[in-house]
Write a protein that binds this DNA or RNA. Sequence first.
DNA 1: ATAGGGTTAG
Length: 682
Amino acid sequence: MLKELAILAQLIQSYALTGKLQKGKQLHAHLLTSTGISSTFIANHLLNMYAKCGDLTHALSMFDHMPKRNLITWTAMITGFSHNARFLDSVLTFSNMCAAGIQPTQFAFSSAVQATTSLRSLAFGRQLHSLSLKLGYHAELFVGSNLADMYSKCGSLDVACRIFEEIPEKDEVSWTAMIDGYAKNGDFHEALMAFRNFLDNENLVADQHVFCSALSACAGLKAGKLGQSIHASVVKSGSSAESAVSNSLTDMYSKAGDMESAVTVVNTFPNGWNVVSCSSLIDGYVEMDHIEEAINTYAESKRQGLYPNEFTFSSLIKACANDAALDQGTQLHAQVIKTSFILDSFVCAVLVDMYGKCGLLFSSSQIFEEIENPTDITWNSKINVLAQHGCGKEAIEAFDQMVARHNKPNHVTFVSLLMACSHSGLVEQGLQLFGSMNTAFGVEPRDEHYSCVIDMLGRAGRLEEAEIFIGKMPSEPNAYAWCSLLGACRTHGRKELGELAAEKLMRLEPENSGSHVLLSTIYAGVGQWEDVKAVRRLMKDSGRKKLPGLSWIEVEKKTHVFGAEDWSHPRKDEIYKKMEELLMRIRGEGYVPYTAAVVSKVEESEKERLLRHHSERIAVAFALISLPAGKPIIVKKNLRVCVDCHSAMKLIAKVERRVIIVRDSARFHHFQDGNCSCRDYW
DNA sequence: ATAGGGTTAG
């Protein structure tokens, strides 16, 4: 009899391992009709079979009706729930098991800790941790690795590290938990150090999981060279056929900007492209502003029969946001509604951003209002949009709501908030928020937060405080910080401090012409034309060119680009005529060219001519002759709109009765009825 | 009889 049971158990187990649910069910039915088999032993096997095959309904019904449950019964149920994404049930079953007086073993701990990891529940995780300490399982290989994984995924890397250290015999899984934990928390250097330490263990061999984690750290650092050397190890180890590894490789090369290698990796996939690596490629192209290639890659992926997912849509919508391509963005919006990807937080965030970047603040808020459960990701997007539109008060209100609804702000949230305060002149509120970051929200201020405060103080003319603040930065002040200070010096005519900032900036970013341009405008502002010339000469001699001003506009789903004095467009004659007409009409409204905006010593008439044909003016003239009547005009510009164009735009909007939205490198301008949404130009 | 880690986004 005992032997028969063993054979029966073996049969059930083979069904469980090979996923043969139907066979298992038949056997179960047969056992129910035949007499006498009601042992817990066989019932456990059947329950486990159902759980492994994903049929939780039957597993649970067996569990509920079992006359006697033992350690194995409970553990199989905990594992069954955990493997079928019913994480809360898994944890609750663990708790019920303890309440029923059955002491869990490392098996039950392992599954329950995994469930809390998926729930991202530090509270549950900590309870399991302390219980495992009491029972002495915390440093056991499986439990220890799972605990380390749980803490690192919940953001507590220091605790994860401590637990990891206590595991006497760490294996590949324990190391992966740590390497990936650092990478996912943005500490890529630490991740790669851990990877290096891992490689020093002679008895351990890097497998696909380890490689994936190490490669994602390289991706985060855009470290193409290091990634390439890991690529070589991947090939040597024979893991390169594994799809997750190839996807990590594709993403690493894409993020490092090495699209050629990324494409090569993708084209060597044995089973053709897949949606993950394809989305990485598209995002790589979008990041480097190669929209054509991004769209071509998307088209190719569809030809290959792939369906876009939430990642693909996210990148494509981001491209529309970058280009202020509202029509294409709206079309993608419709597609994500149809495909239900609208339920994804990232997709919502990027839609909120897209409408915001197209200047449609109302549509942006509407999208946000329609989100059922806003997450920290979507809140950040909303706050950032408000910040970019100069709505400081509203941004702080949104932040208060976010906190009230128990969403945890992170470092991204505070960058947006501080920028909002800076643009709206809310200096006291900004300083207060900066002060509360660490104390009230546990977010350590980073360089970018210091830079925002410097920018904020600078704009408000509090340059002494800004200078003191720059000295307080935890690490060496970066280019952004000096750039903020330099910009403020230009606005407030502070020559000496400006010279200091420019000098620092030129040393930090010699290839950036912005510092030279800013410094020359400071000199021009105080009439030191010799110095203006000297800086210009320095720029020319070192081969640094001023970034040309460009403007983009979408017409009939195609983006057109214009430069200043750019008459290469096929409809140039009509555009020129329209510009002359506009100039006459706005003169009638009192427009006077603001020639002081031209930073060079030339004749007044020449200055006027230089101003008249700035790229944004050409783009608007083109829009007026090609867009349907009444359609808002949305222009993106890579530099700042000049003061002269700013006042001209107000009047063009008035005489043409059009809404004109210009997004320049610093902010939005919403021109309507002779006014602009921004309170002060700078 | 019951247990683990990995790939793309704001």
